[in-house]
Design a protein around this nucleic acid. Structure first.
Length: 289
DNA sequence: CACTTGACCTGTCCGC
DNA sequence: TGCGGACAGGTCAAGT
């Protein structure tokens, strides 16, 4: 699921919903979803107040008053869904069809606040995880050390963007875009969307991409991600925001999951292929190898 | 090192 | 209707 715009949408939702709340208890079903939860929970999670919600790449950081942080990766099918204290156990979620009852069989972690409201970490495929770490240790996590710059930062330039790709010269531009150490937060949806916008075929080798084309990819990537955040992200399958609501970016997608439909720029039928092991969508007229 | 592939999981959809 | 296989928004460990 969740690429930068979706995680950012969840972040904003949580920011308005749980800042200042105090964690009373948590439950988790599998060790995998909340590894090493053990001892630190009692001391640093229960009784902690939520003081900030941050995001780095596709990672959510729920910062607590105890100098600990809950680090969350939603991977493909993760959800962070909040319900208020008036939520009746087992009732349908008030907002959306993608969330039925809470908790459900995909619920991995339940966080209950002292006011009776609850936050559910759901993850159908169990790829995602939540970890409790000292806040000061977050920058030392392997992923955080290697992850590239945030593409939507105001001071991130087109030139800096292009320079990040020098480490991946001999691979395809799509594989390089998906590499989190190049640029943070890009996933399958926005890689395809940005490459269509820039008229660059995803199988083009990085070393053949021109400065002008890098600038186009940079511009379009920032544009589609910004638009997607405005639209609350993309809901293909399981993604919902912190209120259980879907995002509507898919209504605005130009190529992603639009195979068989007309290219909005030239009318040619959009095709689907595999690049970098991922389903990839292109306009065969606008994007040539 | 750079690069590719398979593994991690569950659910759904498609063709036989 | 049932069943097998491919596939799904991400990342990591192993392999070349």
């Amino acid at each position: 699921m969740p690429e930068l715009p979706e995680v950012e949408t969840v972040r904003r939702g949580l920011e308005s919903l749980i800042i200042g709340k105090i964690i009373k208890t948590t439950q988790h079903d599998t060790e995998k979803s909340f590894p090493n939860a053990s001892a630190d929970i009692e001391a640093f999670l229960y009784g902690a107040t939520v003081i900030a919600i941050r995001r780095r790449a596709k990672v959510l950081l729920i910062e607590l008053s105890t100098q600990y942080t809950l680090m969350v990766h939603l991977k493909m099918t993760g959800q962070m869904v909040y319900v208020g204290s008036d939520y009746r156990f087992g009732a349908g979620h008030p907002n959306d069809s993608l969330v039925n009852t809470l908790p459900d069989r995909s619920t991995r972690v339940t966080i209950e606040f002292t006011d009776g409201s609850q936050l559910f970490f759901n993850d159908q495929r169990k790829f995602g995880w939540m970890k409790l770490l000292p806040t000061i240790e977050i920058p030392n996590v392997d992923f955080m050390k290697k992850v590239g710059p945030e593409p939507l930062e105001a001071d991130f330039t087109s030139q800096q963007f292009a320079d990040r790709f020098t480490r991946r010269k001999r691979t395809t531009i799509k594989a390089a875009l998906l590499d989190q150490s190049v640029v943070a937060g890009v996933g399958n949806i926005y890689a395809d969307e940005a490459l269509w916008g820039a008229k660059v075929h995803p199988q083009r080798l990085v070393q053949t991409v021109t400065d002008q084309e890098f600038e186009s990819i940079y511009t379009d990537l920032r544009a589609v991600m910004t638009l997607s955040i405005e639209k609350g992200g993309s809901s293909n399958h399981t993604y919902v925001n912190a209120e259980g609501k879907r995002g509507s970016y898919m209504d605005f997608a130009r190529v992603f999951r639009r195979e068989g439909l007309a290219c909005p720029r030239c009318g040619t039928t959009i095709e689907k292929l595999r690049v970098a092991g991922r389903g990839t969508h292109i306009c065969p007229h606008c994007q040539v190898v």
